[in-house]
Computed example of a mutant assay.
Amino acid sequence: MTIEVAYATPDKQALVSLPVPLDTTAEQAIHASGLLAQFPEIDLEQTKVGVFGVLCNLDHSLKHGDRVEIYRPLMLDPKAARLQRAKK
Rank of each mutant, 00 (worst) to 15 (best):
E4C: 11
D77A: 08
I42Y: 10
Q46I: 04
P19W: 01
V51S: 02
T24H: 08
G50Q: 10
K48Y: 09
L55M: 12
E69W: 03
A14Q: 06
V16L: 08
Q38G: 03
I30L: 06
D66R: 01
M75Q: 15
A80C: 01
D77N: 15
M1N: 02
A8T: 02
K79I: 08
Q46G: 00
M75I: 14
H60G: 01
D43P: 00
A80S: 09
V51I: 14
Q13A: 05
A8V: 02
P19A: 15
E45T: 12
A26Y: 02
Q28I: 03
L74T: 11
F52T: 00
V20I: 13
T25H: 03
L44M: 13
V54F: 06
L44D: 05
L15T: 01
H60T: 06
L15K: 04
Q84W: 06
Q38H: 11
E45V: 02
K48M: 13
A8P: 05
Q46N: 07
P78N: 10
A80G: 03
G34T: 07
V49D: 10
K48R: 15
S17Q: 15
T24V: 10
A29F: 10
D11E: 14
R67A: 04
P78M: 10
H60A: 13
I42M: 09
V5F: 06
D59R: 06
D43F: 00
R72N: 06
I70R: 04
T24Y: 03
L36R: 08
A6K: 00
S17I: 07
V68N: 08
I70Y: 07
D23K: 14
E45R: 11
L58R: 09
V5P: 00
H64C: 10
E27M: 05
L15H: 02
M75N: 12
F39G: 13
D43V: 06
V51Q: 01
V54N: 08
G50Y: 05
N57M: 02
L76N: 05
P10A: 14
V20A: 11
A86M: 10
A81D: 10
L15N: 00
A32P: 00
R67D: 01
G34D: 08
D23M: 11
K48A: 14
Q84R: 15
N57S: 15
L15Q: 03
R67T: 08
